[in-house]
Amino acid sequence: MRLTNSTYTYRFLIPAGIIYFVFFLLPTIMSLFFSMTWWSLTDWKFIGLENFKTFLTEPSLNIGFKNTIIYAIVTCVLKVFLGFLLGAFLSSKLKTMGFIRSMVFFPTLLSSVAIGIAFVMMMHPTQGLINMALKTVGIVGPDWLGDSKIALLSVALVDVWKGVGMATVIFIAGIMSIPEDYYEALMIDGGNTFHKFWNLILPLSRPAMNSVIILAFIGGLRSFDLIWAMTKGGPGFSTDLIASIIYKQYQAGFYGLSTAGNVILFLLVSALAFPLYAYLNKKEVDL
């Protein structure tokens, strides 16, 4: 049997299509179904949209929704800002740049749970390393994780410390892809370091910046492991995110309710991420 180019191409897509169906489409369809049921490991009962109604009337949901948006915006902005500055600096050709890049990227490789546990100890109000260091210079450190006013920001800063390395790597790749001819033309026209940064690096690294914004924003909306390792949503509900509310419902044995919460979180992330992606693509500068 003679294969046409079209048939030959589609046959190469079959393995990827099977993997996509098994690990994405099938779990998504099953989640939609089980979100409309009361279910346990041995039994299930179809109850329609009751789980969605119950989840949306959850008393702590308003706090969780507000915290999720604040957390996503704060972590996204800081990762983009710090990642871009570090990326611009680490794109130079100094001999020690390889080592510095490794050090910046290293926290990304660590487990979020391990980082959370370590920072819980470091942020202890009396015995933590951070407050002990502040005490040596005459500053009384706050209760980073016990004060409801700053607990969410404290966890967000740890998230930024962990994730800024990935943002930096993306920015380095974007900046180093700018053709050298552009820099040479700028220098011929009398440009200096500031002009190089403002007129070349900043606008031409827009594709990398768009990628970092999307990834950081979605990551902030879906964040769970670091929050749970450090505060478990406390004190009170001050650091509860939508994902942690879903997990608490799962812990309590409300499996259908938690599945409905996951579907709502998926819809929320999609509703916010796709318009942002479309807007950023309109602003993108092509090389």
Score class of each variant (00 low, 15 high):
93 K>I: 07
207 P>S: 08
158 V>I: 15
80 V>P: 00
84 F>H: 09
201 I>D: 07
101 R>E: 10
202 L>G: 01
141 G>S: 10
172 I>Y: 04
135 K>P: 06
92 S>T: 14
197 F>S: 05
201 I>C: 00
183 Y>E: 12
171 F>D: 02
133 A>P: 01
169 V>I: 13
95 K>I: 13
166 M>Y: 13
122 M>H: 05
139 I>S: 09
112 S>G: 06
168 T>W: 08
108 T>W: 14
205 S>N: 06
192 N>D: 15
108 T>D: 12
96 T>N: 04
185 A>D: 12
155 V>R: 01
203 P>K: 05
101 R>L: 01
164 V>P: 02
76 C>I: 12
127 Q>S: 12
109 L>D: 03
104 V>I: 15
116 G>M: 05
151 A>E: 07
130 I>W: 03
80 V>D: 10
102 S>I: 06
148 S>K: 10
173 A>K: 03
202 L>N: 02
199 N>K: 14
143 D>A: 07
124 H>R: 03
120 V>C: 11
153 L>M: 14
135 K>W: 09
86 L>H: 08
163 G>P: 04
190 G>T: 08
81 F>E: 06
160 V>K: 00
105 F>C: 02
125 P>V: 11
121 M>L: 15
190 G>E: 10
140 V>S: 10
101 R>S: 04
160 V>P: 03
91 S>C: 12
202 L>Q: 02
117 I>H: 00
122 M>G: 03
161 W>K: 07
112 S>K: 01
